[in-house]
Amino acid sequence: MFSKERFVQYLFFVCALMTVVILGGIFIMLLYKTLKFFELVGLGEFFLERIWKPSAYSKPTYGVLAMLVSTLMVTVGAMVIAIPVGIGAAAYLSEVASPHVREWLKPLVELLAGVPSVAIGFLGIVLVGPFLAKVFHLSSGINALNGSILLAIMALPTIISVSEDAFSSVPLSYREASCALGATKWQTIVWVTLPAALPGILVAVMLGIGRAVGETMTVLMATGNAKAMPHSFFDSVATMTAVIASEIGEVDYGSEHYYGLFAVGCLLFLISLLVNLLADYFNSKMRRYA
């Protein structure tokens, strides 16, 4: 007795289930291989050894520290650039711009999100790199700062559109009250609207961080891929994503190196899980607020 109605119900249910299956599968696979890696190599080496050196001449070492620091450095750098610019742009779009300006500016911002990461990476090599080299008198501009700038560009659309939503969800009465008390537009934005929209803006920032941490192609192309522990933003770095991407293709199935890359992936997964949970937490806070 399979009615059409029921069939459709089942169908959609299976579709919805698919994501859960995939997520569960990925997590189990990552965990399984990571555990296998720790059986072979040990937690101590992974977290205490600085340098990832799977193809060493004599003895390979599998340390995640330099990569982890590189990833964090590039991400923090990107956020230092993208957060002020993104929030500023969102405040302008939501509070200052005339409806006409907003109408053509917003789609343009969203268009930026569609630029492929390879294209941005290329930009880093031919444009940002030489520019940095010239400005800071470096011999080469392929470094962590280059990656930060590019990732900032890539995180901007996310930060702008989510922050803009946060701004516009602040009730109009807040602004009216502020203006009635004699505050200027600038004072209203900084002291009333911005604090009211803050949970939403934090969501935007978290999503932006998530975007930056997970980005692969751009950093692979523009940061130079040197595995040493970075000491400044002018050093070449190899992020976790870049190392996985460049090594997974050649690795011998079932070797320490193979499982090691999954361990790095697992750590990356945990980082983005944390970031997403934080975003969720701020999101729920915002809802309560509104």
Partner: peptide
């Protein structure tokens, strides 16, 4: 071993 500062 290669210097870790080498750009890959």
């Amino acid at each position: 071993d290669y210097s870790p500062k080498m750009k890959n």
